[in-house]
Structures are given as C-alpha cells and as structure tokens.
C-alpha cells in the first residue's frame, strides 16, 4: 500500500509538470510581445518595462522557467500586475466562498444522483427510469447560466423566497449564507447530478447482468438484498471515476455560477483577472485548479482499493 501510494503521488508529478509547461509557454509563445499583450494598447514604455521586469521576460526561456518553477515550489505564485499583491494572498482572500459552494454542491449531487441512478436501474424501462433519464439529459444540455437565471427568476424574483444574488460568510450569518448558497449550489449541481445519475444507472445495469447476481438470486435472496448487497458495491468504481473526472466540470461551472450570482470567489477572481489581463493571477489559478483536480482524482484512485479487494497495491 505505501509503495502504491508513493507511486501514485509520483505519477501526479509529470501531469503537473505538463500543466506548468503549458501555462508557462502559453504567454511566451503567443505571437507578439508578451508585455505588450498584457499591458494592452494604451501602455506606456515604462509600464511595459515594469511588466517585463516583474515577469522576468528579458531572460532566456529556460532560465525563466527554472526560476518560475523554483519560486512555485517555495509557494511563490508571483505578484498581481494590477494590485501588486502576492497572488497567493488574493487567492486566500477569495477561496472560501468557492470552497463552501463546492462542498455543498458535491454532497448535494451525490446525495441526489446516486439514489436517482439506483432507482432508474432497478425500475429499468418504467416511468421512473424515463423521468430520471429525461432529467439527466436536460441537466447535460441546459447551460449552467441558463439554469442559474431560471432559478433566480423563479425563486428570487417571482416567488421571492430567496435573495437574488450575493454572498455572506457562514461564520458571520449562517442563515444568510444558507439562503444565498442554495441557488448557486443547485445550479452548479444540475450537470453533476445528471452525470452521476447516468453513470450510476449504467454501471448498475451492467452489474445486474453479471453471473454473481444470478448466483445471488439462485440463493433465494430478496431483490432488495441482491441490489444493495451484491450489486451496488460492484457498481461503485465507475461512479467514483465519473465523480473525479466530473470535477473538471464543477470547476468550470464555478466560474460561471459565481458571475451569475455575484459571489466573490475564485471564479470571479478569474473573470476579473482576465479583463485586467492580470496574467500571473490567471496562471496561478489554472495551476491551482489543476492541482486540486489531480489531488481529487488521486484520492478517488486510492478509494478504489476500499471498494474492490481485487485492487490491492
């Protein structure tokens, strides 16, 4: 087990390195003067010099890269070109709203989607199944921001049950936080629920065709026991996998959802940085989110061994 753990962690390093190289080259290999691209058309020569200085653009590429990676490893993600603050501080300021929304979304999605998928597979071909599949294809197809505005119109404007937009920290005002977090979380969860429910259904249907399910029936077990004891755990691995890969959708969704609901999280930070052409911040955000994605999938990989005794490392 420890050796496997080590091997998995080591395997994540080249992935992160690829991300780093890509992010690094993106700015440097863009046609034209990177400093001019960042500064925009109205920049003065002094501004350009300052940007070049700040990003070390005057040195050879390799030197820049090594220095950049060296700084990253020491936790230095660079300095914002706009506010002159260390990027890491900006991220720390904005990270909590995003983390809260993500946690709520994730638990909400799993809690809703897995039972939905199980029910659909169990009652395959029935109206329940059709309902779940219809919901799932809608969840895939309606863009997050459309769902967001629909929910706002329905629950905040027409019914006036919930505030329209904004954010409150849970430590300051928990009721206010909860009231404002419900809609963003639901919005964000829609696609995730669709994805997980669909995969749960498909995976369970596969498992229900296995020989050992037939054996379980031949033993005279009840359908309920066949489903919950014999089928569900075997169906879990593909579902875990899709929760992991779907995490990328969650990250992309956050950017949009925070814009729709005016939440001062990392998503808004991203959008603001893009308009300000604050490349160090964009760069750091891509690195960070990729890092989180890799970590989440690493944890999910490791969880397989808990679900399936054949996977022992």
């Amino acid at each position: 087990m420890p050796i496997y753990l080590l091997r998995r962690v080591l395997a994540a390093i080249p992935v992160m390195l690829v991300v780093a190289v890509f992010v690094f080259l993106l700015l440097r290999l863009t046609p034209g003067d990177p400093a001019a691209i960042l500064a925009g058309d109205m920049a003065t020569p002094e501004q350009l010099d300052r940007i070049r200085e700040s990003l070390g653009l005057n040195d050879p590429l390799l030197v820049q890269f090594v220095r950049w990676i060296g700084a990253l490893l020491q936790g230095d993600f660079g300095t914002s070109l706009i506010s002159n603050k260390p990027v890491i501080d900006l991220v720390a300021d904005r990270m909590w709203p995003t983390i809260w929304i993500a946690i709520i979304t994730l638990s909400l999605s799993v809690a809703i989607a897995v039972p939905m998928g199980v029910l659909a597979a169990w009652k395959q071909g029935s109206w329940v199944d059709h309902l779940v599949m219809t919901f799932s294809v809608l969840g895939f197809s309606i863009p997050v921001f459309v769902i967001g505005y629909l929910l706002i119109k329905l629950f905040a404007i027409d019914l006036k049950w919930l505030p329209v937009q904004g954010y409150k920290a849970p430590s300051d005002d928990f009721a206010g936080f909860a009231a404002r977090a419900v809609l963003p979380a639901l919005t964000l969860a829609s696609i995730y629920i669709a994805l997980i429910a669909r995969m749960t259904r498909a995976s369970l249907l596969d498992v229900l065709n296995e020989d050992y399910v037939r054996t379980a029936r031949a033993k005279g077990l009840t359908e309920r026991r066949v489903l919950f004891r014999h089928a569900l755990r075997n169906a879990a691995v593909p579902v875990m996998t899709v929760i992991g890969t779907g995490f990328a959708l969650l990250i992309s969704g956050v950017v949009v959802t925070e814009s729709v609901y005016n939440i001062p999280g990392l998503g808004r930070l991203t959008v603001d940085s893009i308009f300000a052409r604050d490349y160090p911040v964009i760069q750091a955000l891509i690195l960070l989110t990729s890092g989180v994605y890799v970590m989440v999938n690493l944890l999910i990989d490791l969880s397989y061994s808990l679900l399936d005794p054949r996977i022992r490392y």
Binding site: Y212, T215, R217, A218, K219, G220, R229, N234, R310
Partner: peptide, 24 residues
C-alpha cells in the same frame, strides 16, 4: 419461489470466477 431456492433446489454454474461476488 425464492424460499424454495437454496432450501429445496440449488444451482451451480460453469464459471466459478464470475459466479462468486468479487467484493464479498
């Protein structure tokens, strides 16, 4: 019928690897 299975009639299958649940 469920009550009759395993108590009055049982069955074994061809492929013992797939006929047993791998995670139990």
């Amino acid at each position: 019928l469920r009550d009759a299975r395993a108590t009055r009639m049982s069955m074994i299958f061809q492929e013992p690897m797939t006929a047993l649940n791998p995670v139990i």
